[in-house]
Structure formats: structure tokens, C-alpha cells
Design a protein around this nucleic acid. Sequence first.
DNA 1: GCCGTTTTCGGCCCGACTGTTTTCAGTCG
Length: 574
Amino acid sequence: MKNEEVADIFRSIAQILEIQEENVFKIRAYNRAAETVRNCENLEEMVHADTLTELAGIGKDLAAKIKEYFSTGSIEHFEKLKKEVPQGVLELLSIPTIGPKTVKLLYKKLRIRDIDELEKKARDGSLLGVERIKEKTVQNILKGIEIVRKGKQRFDIASAWEIASYYAHELERLPGVKKVSVAGSLRRMKETAKDIDILVVSKKASAVMDALCRLDRVKEVLAKGETKTSVISREGIQVDVRVVDLECFGAALLYFTGSKNHNVRIRTIAVRKNLKINEYGIFKGKKLLASKTEEVMYKKIGMQYVEPEMREDVGEVELALKNELPVLVEQKDILGDFHVHSNYSDGRSSIEEMAQAAKKMGYRYLVITDHSQSLKVAGGLDEGALRKKKKEIDALNKKEKALRILFGTEVEIDSEGAIDYDTEILEGFDFVIASIHTGLKQPKEQITRRLIRACEHPCVDVIAHPTGKLRGVRDSYEIDFEAFFAAASHTKTVLEINAFPDRLDLGDSLVRLAKTKGVKFAIGTDSHQFSHLSFMRYGVALARRAGLGREDVLNTLAFSEVVKSGKRPWRRKE
DNA sequence: GCCGTTTTCGGCCCGACTGTTTTCAGTCG
């Protein structure tokens, strides 16, 4: 993805400037821009529409650099800087406890140019000659190198929440602990997490720190202070725990939730009003104005409460100042799931088991969307199997009144954009979602044409996992999003928000773009066993991150309303 | 390098922990 490439370059530029001890604000500008660009999946569209400067933190200069990258494949300014500070030197920054100052020192004094050289000189003792470096620092560097070599991978949101829940639960049980909250990117429900942040309310901070370090799943203690401790969990993820008083819980939660850019924005706004915000509260001079809850903190700054999922500094601060934040969709609004598999194709649970689990979720309907005939590897259903499945669903629906099970399919879009079943069969389904599983490397024009043809098919209600990205496996296939979203909107084809933690597709910035084109969304978990139905929360979170309200999301409608709102007019009399 | 109901110039968020010091710089979030 080009946005990632540009983001990496901006980050590298920031790092080089840091080592060169450039103006810290320029460095911050590059870092902020890197984040903004990384979160922007439709960067290419913005380059073509010449709207880059609408992005937060992108001005004339950076917009020109982004354009330069899209037209030439490189950025002149960066090529020049790379000659001044070699790439290997930048890699030293990835070592924990080593920052720009140390890197500069090592490079200037000992000509250390990469991690291997640093390790050699750490072991042979030649590091000890450098100012401010003694035995303990050498040990930390060696430990840091080990951590980097192992690779600090990001964790998917579901795994990270599982680990976070363990720590939160264990900390809650401690005597004197009044409250525990997960904070950080996990509370903002980002797709992946690099670490876990937990906030604890207790008057006995040191007892909490001690107990934390003794927990079973703690592999290593990185730093332990009076109110703040960092450990590595046995899964390899870092867990940061901070203890505060109940009085400043809101201020601490706000600070600890981030994002960093969001915090910087609201602190800047506070400064203009002669106020100061830190993790203990919002102050006028020495006088505390608010600190107990996030709600009162936002109120004192003069803005609306911002839901954690929206705190990315992508425009939400401006909306909150104008009192124009959207009312976001919530889990309790969700009445059904549009994408689940059963053991008829590649799922592990029976239709009945899936239905029971859906009932427990409080749903009113569940669409069983097994794969279609051509996807043999996933046990795609032929006509005979479809008849059997329909019969089973009809029988179950007779027994069960609270939940309606719907006869659906996830049908293949073939390499030309044709739909796997004949129209006659497709008309027999209650609901049809269509997706691409083959020909993923086709050129952009062809993939876009396939998707648009699928949208134009009268029986296709939803395009499932529209970009095909799969975490750690493959990126999105190439799509002309403008054209695709226009077609979806025009044909009233709904786009899926796939809630499976490795997919989360469409991503939030593309959902935002699609919404501006008038597209509606259906959240589907892509469950392959009944326990997967709980992934709905990640789909809802993604929708919230994109600023969607109930009105944007099909799952908030009763199924009869879904049918009426859909593209197949002949079904509306149902 | 960005940005503007104080400004197109002069600002730009704030504190905890560590190691090496004896008052603080560097790193991190």
C-alpha cells in the first residue's frame, strides 16, 4: 500500500532530523503527518483530487512530497537525507532505551552504523569509553537488541483484548482497587495493538505494582516505579499499568487513551484558553477545574465528549468544538449478523448451534452464508446441498420463533465478474453476499470491473470483504475505489464491514470515503464457528471509528426493513 | 513543517522512570 510507504518515509525523515537535532516541531510535523498518511487508505484518490491539504497536519510542502512520491516513486529530499544518515543507523532507533541522542553519539564517536556492530562493541567493552554509558546501559542495550531481533509484531485486536482482559481481571481482584480500565489504542479499538495500557484506581499504588509483577503471565519487568510499571507478557506484548487516585480518573483515562495526536490537539486548545491539561486534571494556574470524568474534562475545554474510537485527530476535534459529532452506532443496536458459515461449507458449527449462539447475542435474525459451488476448497455448495440446507433451515424456523434464520450464500465473483450461481438459484436466497477469492493479483482495472459487475447484478445484496486484505497474509487487491463506491451507491449494493479480526475490511478510512458517496454498510462476522459471532464488537467498533450512525448500518434494521431498503424491488411486498 | 474567534509570524503538550549523576539528560508514551 502506497500510503504505508509514504508514512514510512515520513517517519524515517523525522528520525534522521531527530539524529541531526533539527527543530523539534519540524520533527513532530513529520511524525504527525506519517500517522495521518498511514491511517489514510484512500491517499491515491486524494492525490488525484488534489485535496491532500485537507488532511490534518498536511500543508503545502508535505502535500507536494506525497505527490512527488506518487508520480516518481521517490522523494528527493529523503534521498538526500539518506546519504547523510545511513539506513542501518536508523535501525538502531528501534532498540528500546536507545533514542536519537544515543544513536548520534554512537555514530559520531564509534562509527557504529548498524545493530550488528553495536552488539559487537557492546560485548567487547568498547562502549564503556563513551560518555554517559556505563555497565547498566550496556546491559540494557544488549537486552534491547535481543528484543528487536525477536521482532515486536503487532497483535490483532481480538488477541490483544484477550490478554488485556486477563490483566484487567487480575488487577480488579486486588484489595484496595476501586476501578480498572483498559486504555490506549485498545480502548480506541484500533485494528492492531503494539502494547496494552491499563489504568487502575487505587490508593495503594505500590501494592498494585508489586502484585502486577508477580502475575503468572508476566515474563519480564521492564520498568517499575511508584505509579507506573511496564512488563512483557508471556505472549510477547508489552503491558503498561498506571495507578491513579479516583479523583483524577477522568483526566488519567483521557491522557492514557490517546491518541497522542488527539491529546496534543486538545491540550493545544486548552493552552489557547489559558488552561493546562495533564493526566491529573485540567488547570487554570494552580486551580483544578475538572478531573473526575472524561465528560467533565471535555466540557471544561468547551467541546463535546468524543467517543474513544474517534480520537485519532482526523477531524473529530473540529466537529466536537462545533457540537457536530455524529451519534455512533452501538452494539445494542445490532439485530443480526449478515455473514456466517455453517458446517455445510467450511464452518465448524451446525446451523442450529450458530442459531443458538445468535439468540444469546440477542439477535432477531441470522443469515447463513455458506460458500458457493465453485469455491471447492471451502466446501462450496452445489444445488443438491442447497436444497438440503434450505429444508433444514425451514424446519429450524418452524421450531424457533424468537430468531429468524435466513437462507443465504457467499457467492463467488469469478475472474470476469460473473456470479457463481444462475439467477434462478440466486432468486431463491433470502440474502446474497458476493466476494472475490480468486484472481487477487489481477490489474486494478480488471478487479474494479469485476466488483462493479457484481454490484450491477440484480440479486447481489452485499459485497463482502471488499478489498480482500488479510492481516499478515496479503494486502488489499488493487481497486479504483472512487469508481467502485460510485457503482455500489448507484446500484444500492451494500458494502460489508467484515468484523473478523484478521480482515476488518473495509477499513475505517475507506468506510468514511464510501459513506460520502452514499454507500450503506452491513456488518458481518464471517464466523466459522459459533464463538466467532462475538467478533461483532470489532465490526461495530470499526463502524464507530469511521463515524457511522445507526442509519448507516443495515444490522440495526429488522430483516423486513432490510429487504424493503434493498435493491430488489420485487421483494418489497414480502 | 503546520497553522490561525489572540496571529500569515511566532508559536507549537506534558509528566514518569532510568541511569548516571548530585541536579539532570534521555527515553517513552
